[in-house]
Amino acid sequence: MGTIELVATRYRPEQDVQPWEQRYTVPCSEDMSLLDALNYIKDELDPSLSHRWSCRMAICGSCGVMVNGEPKLSCKTFLRDYREAGVVQVRALDNLPVERDLVADISGVVEHIEAVKPWLIRHSTAPVDTAHTQTPEQMARYHAFSQCINCALCYAACPQFGRNPAFLGPAALTLAQRYNLDSRDEGSSERMPWLNAEEGVWSCTFVGYCSEVCPKDVDPASAINRGKVASDINYGVNLFRLLRGKSDA
């Protein structure tokens, strides 16, 4: 087993005026993930290093960090892939405030996700003994978008969110689309104002980096651009409403 250099960007708000870098030498084996390395540092070298993690299997979405400038889940990133580079640079996710060391504050992202009401909204009440059945085709329409684990890697990748944090961003818009496409849902009229807004789908310029970094292959760029089609149709329908003297929807 060899070793590899790991450079972590440290920031302790109570002590540090600005972020600084600390270099660690960690073991590097074939099966060692970056999360294993961070835990090694925490347990064996420096208990003061803060990083966030939980499941170790790309399900919880809490261990997102920038690895050599790319947003990645540390549990899904392996040291063996950085042997050639010789050094692994780790810092907190871009475009988000840093809470401490490698921990980004994703509360703004969570607020954006909550805003689009990412749950099934029903206006009609079905009989209790009947399930809301769905065909495989109906499920296929939204299934890929439902794989989002809210890890916020797409927000660290999105240049538009970096420039304007009011932009709802990839995950929130993908989840809005996920529920709007669900045959069991009746709440699209409550979500469309968010999609239609300047800070909704229309702030996206289809850079597409969100889809490249997504660890669950959700393809937010596709979801947002399908959201643009929905918003476009909504705009046209609303225009007809206005022309017929009805109120702005």
């Binding site: 104002p193 968010w194 239609n196 807004a197 229309w202 918003s231 476009d232 046209g236 609303n238």
Partner: peptide, 15 residues
């Protein structure tokens, strides 16, 4: 939230 008027230019772009 203010509705964006981007759909006009986006429709022409898409077409």
């Amino acid at each position: 939230m203010r509705r964006s008027h981007e759909p006009i230019s986006w429709s022409l772009f898409g077409a």
